[in-house]
Amino acid sequence: MAVLNVHERALPVPPERVGALLDTLGSGEDRLWPTEWPPVRFDGPLAVGATGGHGPVRYTVTHHVPGRWVRFRFTGRGGFYGFHEFAVEDVGADRAVLRNTMVLRPRGVRWLGWLLFFRPMHNAAFAQCLDRAELALTGAVARPVRWGWYVRLLRRLSACAVPRWYTTPYSGS
């Protein structure tokens, strides 16, 4: 059984502007990824073959169309198989949709990890990522995401268990 998880935001700007923002992901000029989460880092520029991740999540860039689409295949410890991607969709009249799609096949006890830890954290981080995109492109966020008590608890527990997730850039290991 697979998980399909989609987050998207319609933005009142041309797709080229959204694509330029997407292309900053993981760079020193990253304007997309929220600073409250472990940073996205790669072993080089955002391009096919680059490896990296955020926090404990590791992946490799398998597809990249600059300004339009990037797909990452999960490569971390066993149990999570699949990908996540960002896509910019042109919806006309100087409007675009920024979408993050994840297809994941947790194996064994990783299902429990997905349900109890990774799903709420993923949902909070990617909702906040879309807030950051909206803020960067329009100067305001109409409905900012709010973390629930469970996400706040998980973040506290994660920071206590592995504080380097929040401070150490990707080192290639």
Rank of each mutant, 00 (worst) to 15 (best):
F72P: 03
A124G: 04
S173Q: 07
F83N: 06
R41F: 02
R73Q: 09
D43A: 11
Y59D: 05
R31V: 06
P106F: 14
C160Y: 04
V145K: 07
T60A: 03
R58G: 06
T51W: 11
W147E: 10
P34K: 09
M121Q: 02
L21C: 11
R99K: 13
R143P: 00
W149P: 10
V88D: 11
A47W: 06
G113F: 04
D43L: 07
W33F: 15
L21H: 09
V88M: 08
D90R: 13
G26L: 09
L46S: 11
F80E: 04
G172F: 13
P39R: 15
G53P: 07
F117C: 06
G108D: 06
V48L: 11
V88G: 12
R41L: 05
Y166E: 07
A125V: 13
W147S: 04
V109F: 15
R99F: 10
W33M: 15
L25E: 01
T51F: 10
F118H: 13
V109W: 15
N123L: 01
W114D: 03
G53T: 09
S171F: 01
Y166I: 04
G28A: 15
R143G: 03
V40S: 02
Y150G: 00
V13L: 01
D90G: 15
T62D: 02
L112Y: 06
H63K: 10
A2P: 09
D90H: 12
H63F: 00
V65N: 04
R9N: 04
P120C: 12
A2E: 13
S27P: 11
P169N: 09
W114T: 05
G108Y: 05
R132H: 09
T35D: 14
A159Q: 13
V162Q: 05
A127K: 07
G19M: 06
L153P: 02
S158Q: 13
L115H: 06
G148P: 01
M121Y: 08
A142M: 05
D131I: 09
G113H: 08
R146A: 08
R99T: 03
S158P: 06
L157A: 09
G148Q: 01
R58M: 11
A125Q: 10
F117E: 07
V13W: 00
T101N: 02
E36L: 08
V91S: 15
F74I: 08
R31K: 14
P12N: 04
G78I: 03
V88S: 08
V151R: 02
G113A: 12
W69I: 00
R152P: 04
Y166M: 02
D23Q: 10
D131K: 01
W33L: 08
